[in-house]
Amino acid sequence: MEIRIFFTILLSTILINNYVLSRNLGICPFLGVSKRLDSALGMGLAVIFVMTLTSFITHPLYKYVLVEYNITYLITIVFILVIAALVQLVEMVIRKISPVLYQALGIFLPLITANCAVLGVALLNISSGFPDPNVDLGLLKSVVQGFGSGVGFTLALLIMAGIRERLELADVPENLKGVPITFLTAGLLALAFYGFSGMRI
């Protein structure tokens, strides 16, 4: 039963409610880092990592600190500072422990603080009991949701990067080059992803 629910969450966050293509979150890195496939992969992995970790930390923080002391109105300020601190910490730890990993992910980490998808996942984790409001799954669900959202983001980023690498060879009108054609492509992608919304799970 529980495994089925986790599967539903993963499917829902990766395909049906894709953060970039259906919720319109995290557009800035989606435009900025989707020029080449390898940098897209690096950014995607960094986002998966930070999103999972953020979900793991913000959920108990909300439940046992903010709700407990009746200060839920401080949620925005607390979450964004936690994310900022977390990203800094992860950057420092990775630099000390694994220089190889740091070379791959390092330059993307500072960009993640201002990625609205990360704060979005932290807020959505607590605001909605998606996908089934009648079962309280708690921390584990948050983490799975965070992980799935990261994977969904990465998937969209990789597809986009693949398309843009080919698009460089295409003959695009001068004024349509760059961001405008990327948005039009993203629109077609979003349309394709919209097909998943009819899926019954």
Binding site: L21, S22, R23, N24, E174, N175, L176, V179, P180, I181, T182, F183, L184, A186, G187, L188, A190, L191, Y194
Partner: peptide, 24 residues
Amino acid sequence: VMILAPGAFFTLGLMLWAMNTINS
């Protein structure tokens, strides 16, 4: 479709295109 996410991408893409054309 215009009210859904794809419509947002299309409209903004076209708007940026128009802006670029005017500026050039």
